[in-house]
Design a protein around this nucleic acid. Structure first.
Lengths: 123, 123
DNA sequence: ATTATTGTACTAAGTAGTTAATACAACAAT
DNA sequence: ATTGTTGTATTAACTACTTAGTACAATAAT
């Protein structure tokens, strides 16, 4: 797991989002144990309290669950995971349209711009 | 100008972004005078200091300039405006690809998803 | 029973963003 | 000269986020 945080946004929300992305991708599989809070915090170069806060929130979303002294695990409920994947992706796309439309672009222009980006702007 | 702010991100950065979008769209034309700090802050339901901070940053970016006691205006330098428009749009698209690729989607899937969204998900 | 590992809770301190209130500086209009 | 409008600066208080340090609770492993 690779960690990087931008300024201007709480770290714990960034952890939540990055974790969602990783779970969506399958870096963490359903039922997988995730590192202990202290270890995970160390890995992310973040205070344990901050990591704790992020994980608690992911748990509130049903993406993680806790076995009291055994550790934290990714949920096995596929519905929950699918829903998260779907909503996450749709949110990103919705946000793109919102922003580009605020710039004055219409749907067609946006789709073209995205297609052009994928084709021409290599990485 | 319509104002709305999300929690979890500084208000002044959100003002900066919304102003860039409005300028990009042409809501504020080159050379246009923008409302006085106090009025603009009132309109956005925000403290004058917060609005001041946002406007100062936009000025630092060359998008606004100040005539000491006359008010603030949108720059007339078309290059600066074009550059802003270009970078702003590219940033949004780049961010979309970054995030969706972190979810495990490839370029083609992303383009398809965006096209599908534009066609099927009406608003 | 003891130990180690896990999640959890609490307090204190520091930093950043936000609001509030006030004051000053520049200058156009009168 | 006076007034009003503009941007700017300063100080204080409040909240949220982050870190640090410490302690407790539960239980699997020994």
């Amino acid at each position: 797991m690779e960690w990087s945080f931008k300024p201007g946004q709480p770290i714990y929300t960034q952890i939540v989002e990055q974790m969602k992305l990783s779970i969506a991708k399958g870096v963490f599989q359903p039922g997988d144990k995730i590192p202990a809070v202290r270890d995970f915090a160390l890995e992310a170069a973040v205070n344990p309290n901050t990591m704790q806060r992020a994980l608690t929130e992911l748990e509130r979303d049903g993406l993680l669950y806790t076995e009291r002294t055994n550790g934290r695990f990714v949920t096995k409920e596929e519905e929950t995971l699918d829903k998260m994947r779907r909503e996450l992706g749709e949110d990103f796309i919705r946000e793109l349209f919102e922003n580009l439309e605020k710039m004055g672009m219409d749907k067609e222009e946006i789709v073209d711009a995205v297609a052009h980006w994928a084709k021409e702007v290599k990485k």
